[in-house]
Design a protein around this nucleic acid. Structure first.
Lengths: 219, 219
DNA sequence: AATTTTATGTTAACATTGTTCACATAAAAC
DNA sequence: GTTTTATGTGAACAATGTTAACATAAAATT
């Protein structure tokens, strides 16, 4: 807190804050240690007193990033006051929204470049990945209550997640004109993703997205 | 062809070949110009007589990579001797297979790192992207013939592509245990992707993947 | 209170990377 | 046979991540 010219106070947090501010605007690939030292007014090697390498800084960012992601997406999925369908819909919307609002962070978390760092940062394989696990749990909950078909929940989880991840990636990586990605279009897609899960007994009164079928979320 | 000690013959092609050989095993991020000069036995600056920069080399690789991708995936989709459902199924399988066989190339083509280079290499936006366009055409063909629902073909195309891209990415980026990705599981997922497209009038006799419903491809 | 230890910051130097420039040599064009 | 063009070399640059030796302030110990 006390600013004397030598010791900085809480350099480590400052480095992280500046790094996150940076990837709010530019890709993490362009983040350089010089940017961090310049922004903090320290020397180029000061960061090595707080992180053993650039990779360790990235690893810390990944850990915090997954916390942020989870905080943004999970509550909608776990909100027991809403119907399961609503929860799926709202968390899917949150997922895409997180990616759109934080494209560089999303790529850092789910991209390949730091896959090894991610694997050491969090245990993401199979059921251990928090996002994956909670999605799978929600699907299994729906299967028990009879809302969803009693099929392979692992496969269903993968397919939902693939659709969300693929859509988010294609959007933020510039593969489709973002202007064409209207809310209505997204809702149609989310409806499609969910339509495969619900039991055969449910009749869809309309093919319109959330028109008047079961998939219309309460908003 | 004639090897004298100074002029190399066809260095440009050799550079490209070595680069593709490299990303067959390692990520394109690790490809360095020194690797190329060492492998060809030339000096470190020789490559600049054939590519104005490393980015231009990458751009050439992206162009050729998309050609390879198209050659691998498109024929199945355009094979008029097969049913439309079969064509969807087989090209989806080819898509995933290409990503699994060429993970580093797939990431180079569809990842974010070289997005700008890709955009200058090929016109990928909207209908101009060859893969996207041919998928959309196939969907519209199915809509005309009555096999597929007459809904927004753009949205349907995006969702199918998102599912394929997301699944491929998650698989090659280590988000799921590859051993759990059995052929049967993939087939179930492809079936799910397609189930949303087919007309309501079609009755599915089974929920089993390609069990005995319309979605069973001829193999 | 004085001393020692630990934490934190600085400066100088390194190897690696992509890149450029002046120069060298072979092939092609005239 | 001379000139022009294409292609390759070697030396040098700045930027990057990193390390080592040194410096200073805070904390711990006596």
């Amino acid at each position: 807190m006390i600013k004397n010219d030598y010791h900085h106070g809480n350099l480590k947090d400052d480095f992280l804050k500046i790094a996150f501010d940076f990837i709010a605007k530019e890709d993490v690939e362009k983040l350089t240690l010089k940017i961090l030292s310049d922004a903090t007014g320290t020397s180029r090697s000061a960061i090595y007193r707080h992180f053993s390498s650039k990779e360790e800084l990235i690893e810390t960012m990944i850990q915090k990033g997954f916390d942020d992601f989870d905080t943004f997406v999970s509550p909608s999925l776990k909100d027991k006051e809403k119907s399961l369908i609503d929860r799926f819909y709202l968390s899917a919307k949150a997922y895409l929204e997180f990616a759109k609002q934080n494209p560089n962070l999303y790529r850092l978390l789910f991209g390949n470049k730091y896959a090894k760092i991610r694997e050491s940062a969090i245990n993401i394989k199979d059921d251990d990945c928090s996002g994956f696990a909670s999605l799978k749990l929600a699907i299994e909950e729906g299967q028990k209550s009879g809302i969803l078909k009693k099929e392979d929940s692992f496969m269903r989880t993968i397919l939902i997640w693939s659709s969300l991840h693929g859509l988010s990636s294609l959007v933020i990586d510039g593969f489709m004109d973002i202007d064409k990605m209207s809310d209505e279009l997204c809702e149609s897609m989310f409806a499609d993703m969910l339509n495969n899960l619900v039991t055969n007994k449910v009749k869809f009164l309309s093919n319109m997205p959330f028109g008047d079928g079961i998939l219309k979320p309460n908003r």
